[in-house]
């Protein structure tokens, strides 16, 4: 196994021994349970509410883990000085970053899979039809989570944990708003405002592109081409951030 693999497997092991992950899975179960409760109250849109709440819960928990674990992934190693003995080993700094990233990706993959399983079970129990669109939505959610993890990791290579959290959250929110903002200012007169929004649009990740929850909950699928393109976009964005993180990390003193 290469050095990246060794680091990744160990990062995965760390998150498994971190009880927080289990708690969040439990939390997902609770949220889905709540959706069932709510569905009992509103008889009319029973199916849609369950699907909506379930997808939202999976998304929220995935993003929270990606942000918080992503930020601490490398920062914690530096703050706790565990990095000294790792970086004294025959492993380049870039490989270390990539190993940590893939370790967390693996954790998130397992985590999302468990949540998806719980979700599907809930749907099945309440006789809600399981549409392919649901799987599409979860797949793009996972891509979004890969991007969010990369954002968190990128910031954490050069700022404190607190600042990284603020920046990552900020970029996440902006990433969901830029498309709307751009549409809003499209017809306006202000040149400067338009330029700023354009800049934000191209610089920040277009996370809304990866959000198809609304239509997926009512069983409307997107074209396979859209899935391909959106996934490719997300992976590319994450790749660029990861490269940036590696470059910044190369020049750090510990």
């Amino acid at each position: 196994m290469g050095a990246i693999g060794v680091i990744a497997v160990n990062a995965f092991r760390e998150s498994l021994r971190d009880k927080i992950l289990y708690n969040l899975v439990l939390f997902a179960g609770l949220l889905i349970g709540l959706s069932v409760l709510l569905a009992d109250l509103s008889i009319t849109e029973h199916h849609k509410v369950i699907a909506d709440m379930g997808l939202a819960a999976i998304n929220l928990i995935g993003v929270i883990i990606a942000m918080f674990v992503g930020i601490s992934l490398v920062n914690k190693e530096i703050e706790r000085r565990t990095i000294y003995t790792i970086m004294a080993r025959p492993i380049s700094r870039s490989f270390f970053i990539m190993g940590k990233y893939f370790g967390l990706t693996l954790t998130l993959l397992v985590n999302m899979s468990v949540m998806l399983a719980v979700f599907l079970l809930t749907l099945w129990l309440y006789h809600v039809p399981i549409e392919p669109s649901l799987f599409q939505a979860v797949q793009l959610m996972f891509v979004e989570i890969l991007v969010v993890t990369a954002i968190a990791l990128f910031f954490s290579t050069f700022t404190s944990s607190t600042l990284s959290a603020i920046f990552t959250l900020g970029l996440y929110v902006i990433g969901h708003l830029t498309a709307d903002l751009r549409a809003m200012v499209a017809n306006s007169e202000g040149v400067v405002g338009k330029a700023v929004v354009d800049l934000l649009y191209y610089l920040c990740p277009n996370l809304e592109m990866l959000n198809i929850k609304g239509q997926a909950a009512v069983g409307v699928s997107v074209a396979p081409e859209y899935m391909m393109l959106a996934s490719l976009y997300g992976l590319l964005y994450a790749g660029v951030l990861l490269t940036g993180a590696c470059l910044v990390f190369q020049r750090r003193d510990f």
């Binding site: 196994m1 060794v6 680091i7 971190d18 706790r80 003995t85 004294a88």
Partner: peptide, 24 residues
């Protein structure tokens, strides 16, 4: 290399810890 104050992954057992560094 042994750093100044030993700060290590404390969630690993002694065995796992050394195994990790051997593989690295």
């Amino acid at each position: 290399f042994l750093p100044e104050s030993p700060y290590f992954y404390d969630y690993l057992t002694a065995e796992e810890f050394l195994g990790f560094y051997g593989e690295l």
